[in-house]
Amino acid sequence: MKNKVLLLDIDYTIHDNSLFKNLLGKDFQSKFSISKNKIINIYKLLLNETGFFKPDLFVERLSKEIGYDHKIEIKNILWQKKRFKQTLYPDTRLFLKKIQDTIDTYIFSKGDKLFQTAKIHSLIKAIEPSGVFIFKNKYNKLNNTVKKFKGKKVFIVDDSPDIINKIKSIDNKIVTIMIKRPKFNKNYDYSKKTLADYVVKNLTAAAKIIESK
């Protein structure tokens, strides 16, 4: 076990959620008489209604739209393993490989646990065996999560300004790296002042910071 710990977000950090929605829409459009944009809009609507994506609710809503006799097929399309793997950002694997000898990596994410875990399934060897923390309300779990690593040098890489600011208020010594991808999460207000130690556009830059500390 290393002295440095990384709390790593999933959506818009290591996983391209915009690309995922786009490919998901295309897959349904090619199979059923429903437009790609309608699929994306249903996905976004459910996300806004519940605060995070609930796969069972998505399957139910689409079954109502397409037909309940297609429910199993709809579920299978949603959970297609290839798409989860395809929609990791290109720099994700190299990032994890570069930092693996210097830091223990833990996933710290918000959402449905099974669905979020499916996104990182192909990366699981690069993550600590007990290192997947996925909560329905990530913001409220920050304090308890940070306490698990008392005595360690903690880093966080996340795209949420609110998470970055909250974690700084808990412990100012935590090294905070906010990632803002070219196609970022439109639900976040990046005009607000951030307490992030660093703001980067990709994981290559984040790796350099982690290695230098």
Results as ranks from 00 to 15, higher is better:
residue 132 V to K: 01
residue 128 E to P: 00
residue 142 L to N: 11
residue 113 K to M: 05
residue 109 S to W: 04
residue 131 G to A: 07
residue 138 K to D: 09
residue 131 G to W: 02
residue 113 K to H: 12
residue 139 Y to G: 01
residue 143 N to S: 15
residue 104 D to S: 12
residue 111 G to F: 07
residue 114 L to S: 15
residue 121 H to M: 12
residue 132 V to W: 01
residue 127 I to P: 03
residue 147 K to V: 00
residue 126 A to H: 12
residue 105 T to G: 02
residue 138 K to T: 05
residue 144 N to V: 08
residue 140 N to F: 08
residue 136 K to S: 10
residue 108 F to T: 06
residue 104 D to V: 09
residue 116 Q to T: 09
residue 141 K to M: 14
residue 122 S to P: 10
residue 117 T to P: 00
residue 144 N to I: 10
residue 148 K to I: 11
residue 132 V to C: 02
residue 123 L to V: 14
residue 146 V to Q: 02
residue 134 I to S: 08
residue 121 H to K: 15
residue 138 K to I: 07
residue 105 T to A: 13
residue 105 T to Q: 01
residue 131 G to I: 03
residue 127 I to F: 04
residue 123 L to M: 12
residue 114 L to V: 12
residue 133 F to M: 11
residue 123 L to A: 13
residue 122 S to H: 14
residue 113 K to L: 08
residue 144 N to L: 11
residue 116 Q to Y: 02
residue 103 I to A: 00
residue 146 V to C: 02
residue 110 K to S: 08
residue 123 L to S: 11
residue 130 S to R: 06
residue 108 F to Q: 09
residue 106 Y to W: 04
residue 125 K to S: 14
residue 140 N to H: 11
residue 118 A to P: 05
residue 143 N to M: 10
residue 105 T to Y: 03
residue 103 I to Y: 00
residue 129 P to D: 06
residue 133 F to D: 04
residue 144 N to R: 11
residue 129 P to T: 04
residue 136 K to R: 10
residue 142 L to V: 08
residue 145 T to R: 01
residue 142 L to I: 11
residue 124 I to W: 03
residue 120 I to A: 09
residue 107 I to W: 02
residue 122 S to K: 10
residue 109 S to R: 04
residue 111 G to R: 09
residue 126 A to W: 14
residue 126 A to R: 05
residue 125 K to N: 15
